[in-house]
Amino acid sequence: MAKLILDNNMAAPDDIYELLTELHRGLEPEQSADVNARLILLLANHIGDVEVLAEATRIAREHLPPAPELKREI
């Protein structure tokens, strides 16, 4: 089972960071959100492995309060 890489895996980190920031140049927040969604979907398909993505999603929001409980009496 593949594992999410958390040490540096980028040969040219500055190039990659620049790609990400340049991507949003001149965009309105709404357009940026759209472009980010497309980017994440493209990368998610490329990675393909649900375990790797699950680990990434966990870390992506670990600094924020946990999601509220959904289940309730109705």
């Binding site: 959100a33 759209d34 980010n36 979907l41």
Partner: peptide
């Protein structure tokens, strides 16, 4: 965010 993903 869900709407952006869905539309994308």
């Amino acid at each position: 965010a869900s709407r952006h993903f869905r539309d994308a």
